[in-house]
Design a protein around this nucleic acid. Structure first.
Length: 637
DNA sequence: CAACTATACA
């Protein structure tokens, strides 16, 4: 009869004899003073005043027994838990699923998944709680494949997954980027009534988002009737993580309009979206909002602000916030180092990197090295880049990824060391991707290496035949070396394949409103003033000896027309608009969907000198920080 | 027993 003690239903009164037995068991396992203190404190904490608190606090009840175990879970008192487990085994107090669930939970929480698994495997009967607790352990700490195996095992075992199981299984799918299984889980959910459950839907949204299917995520999101902040956050993060920051920002507005208050998670996701969209005014607004709520004291929010300010050109502000962090985590260091790197402050980036390793004793990861290598890159530091690469591999035993190789190829290409770059590519342990060939092609463009440029383009076309930018780049290489027929042939090849050059577009955000400009755009209400300003500046520039360089325009058109096309490049329109709409001295940030052309680069340098303004252009792949006639890229980009 | 939150090459 004893084994049945522990499987009595919770509300059934225990027999006096059972109670005595349990009490003895419990007391004998809690002999040490520390354990006792721990347990008492934890038990007190886990029984808040409630209608049945008298039951929980009664020392002889089954509730007390389970609550002691519960408190072990809460305080991770492995010792006490193991003793209890031992006693249970010795006394033949058998397999009660409630107690087993708590033990499995305890072992998993203390990192002893093996123990948890053995206990689980030994249970003759498994209910949904037991499955969930074990799946949770694997869904949280991995290996995630096991979580999915268990989910499948549970179905085979005949236990129906519930509203707790699905989010866990989906979390594992998300971690593995296993879209196929994710869809399978979704299918199953649709066959039940759990499709209405907010937790399950949040799990689905997140799973689709992590697997890159934002629109599937949105479809699930749209069908949810009542949405709490977490579901909104999941969807906002979905856009942010999939390169659609503008939609993330607008969804945050929708969330507020729907009366759901932003939480710290909302702000972190949205601020990071603002960073990616280089939407500084919006980011500052969010910063202010977080400040009023007192969220900005939290390191996670502050780190997202570090990233946002750095990406919006305010590296110094980012640094101040970085210094204010209570504890500088790896991500914070990475954000700051990459922030310096992308603006060309390679000396600051390297100083910070050393501070991180030596003073703060934080171990860098592969992302840190991407930042450091790209910083070397922007500074043209070949020797240092190689050294850091060696440091990464030899000292930190970090396996280089294709991104690290891309940085090296890029720095070598910039320096015109094509043989080394090409050898490096040939010796890479992985297949070179489009980034690698793109970096090489970029170097070829700078040094007018037509031969290797052709090869790189060949590879690029194989890898991404749909990308018109590749054709444009090669055509520019030809044009720069005066090979006009070849330039035209590439252009023709491009049109024959039905590819269109992406139209250049730049935007600038002023007072929370985004103003976008296309090439030759005359649609802006202040268009006349914008062109007037450009003309005024051109006059001042030719006084300074500026001659337009029309080389990059590869169309077969007359010089005058080329000039006109150049002078109405979208970034110039955006800058002119910024100049006439802001007080003198205001820093301008312009974002562009393509690369800045050579002539615009020269022009913007001159403008920054003439009007004495800091102008930041955020290219499709880097920043140009123009101050007093100089650019942070030192004309290498 | 459950869902969301920062960093990265070209």
């Amino acid at each position: 009869m004893l084994p049945s003690i522990l499987s009595k239903s919770r509300n059934e009164p225990l027999l006096a004899r059972d109670r005595r037995r349990l009490c003895r068991l419990l007391c004998s396992s809690l002999r040490t003073a520390t354990d006792l203190q721990l347990t008492n404190a934890a038990a007190a904490a886990s029984s808040p005043p409630s209608s049945n608190s008298h039951i929980a606090s009664s020392p002889n009840s089954y509730h007390h027994y389970t609550s002691v175990l519960q408190s072990c879970v809460a305080s991770r008192s492995l010792g006490t838990g193991r003793q209890l487990h031992g006693r249970l085994l010795v006394s033949g107090l058998g397999p009660d699923t409630v107690l087993a669930t708590k033990l499995v939970d305890l072992y998993a929480a203390c990192g002893l998944v093996g123990h948890a698994r053995r206990l689980f495997d030994g249970m003759p009967k498994r209910n949904v709680f037991l499955w969930n607790v074990l799946i949770r352990a694997y869904a949280r700490d991995g290996p995630h494949e096991v979580a999915i195996q268990l989910y499948r095992g549970m179905v085979d075992y005949g236990v129906e997954p519930d509203n707790f199981t699905y989010p866990l299984a989906l979390k594992a799918c998300a971690a593995l980027l296993d879209l196929e299984t994710g869809r399978e889980v979704h299918e199953r959910v649709l066959g039940t009534h759990w499709g209405e459950d907010m937790f399950v839907c949040a799990g689905l949204v997140d799973m689709y988002a992590k697997c890159g299917c934002v629109d599937d995520a949105r479809a699930v999101f749209d069908r949810i009737r009542v949405r709490d902040s977490v579901v909104w956050n999941s969807m906002i993060a979905a856009y942010g993580q999939n390169g659609r920051p503008m939609e993330a920002l607008s969804l945050c507005r929708d969330m507020a309009a729907n009366g759901v208050g932003p939480t710290i998670a909302t702000l972190v996701s949205t601020i990071s979206a603002a960073a990616d969209a280089a939407a500084l005014p919006r980011g500052r607004e969010l910063h202010g909002f977080g400040w009023r709520r007192g969220f900005d004291r939290q390191d996670k929010l502050k780190t997202s602000l570090v990233d946002m300010y750095a990406k919006s050109g305010w590296v110094q502000v980012a640094r101040v916030l970085f210094e204010q962090l209570m504890k500088r985590e790896l991500v914070s260091w990475n954000a700051m180092i990459c922030g310096y790197g992308m603006h060309g402050h390679f000396d600051e980036a390297l100083k910070l990197f050393n501070k991180m390793r030596v003073e703060a004793q934080v171990t860098p990861d592969n992302i840190t090295f991407v930042g450091v290598l790209s910083a070397c890159n922007h500074g043209g530091m070949v020797k240092e880049a190689k050294e850091f690469f060696g440091l990464m591999v030899d000292v930190y035993s970090i396996k280089p990824t294709v991104q690290h190789f891309t940085c090296l190829v890029d720095v070598l290409g910039h320096a015109g060391r094509f043989e080394e770059a090409y050898d490096l590519i040939k010796g890479m342990p992985m297949q070179p991707d489009s980034g690698i060939w793109g970096a090489l092609l970029n170097g070829c463009k700078i040094h007018k290496n037509v031969e290797l440029g052709e090869l790189a383009l060949q590879k690029l076309i194989e890898l991404e035949p749909e990308d018109a930018g590749n054709y444009v780049l090669l055509s520019n290489i030809y044009a720069q070396s005066g090979k006009w027929e070849k330039a035209a042939r590439v252009r023709k090849l491009m049109t024959n394949r039905g590819l269109k050059k992406i139209i250049g577009c730049s935007w600038i955000e002023l007072k929370g409103k985004t103003h976008g400009f296309l090439v030759g755009d005359a649609s802006h209400p202040r268009s006349a003033e914008i062109y007037e300003e450009l003309e005024r500046l051109e006059g001042l520039m030719s006084d300074a000896g500026y001659m337009p360089d029309t080389m990059p325009v590869f169309h077969d058109v007359g010089d005058d027309e080329k000039r006109n096309m150049m002078r109405s490049h979208s970034e110039r329109l955006a800058i002119a608009f910024g100049l006439i709409s802001t007080p003198s001295g205001t820093k301008l940030l312009v974002t562009k969907n393509l690369r800045v052309c050579e002539d615009c680069h020269v022009v913007i340098k001159l403008i920054s000198q003439i009007v004495q303004r800091e102008i930041i252009i955020r290219d499709v792949n880097r920043y140009h920080h123009f101050v007093n006639g100089e650019c942070s890229c030192k004309d290498y980009w």
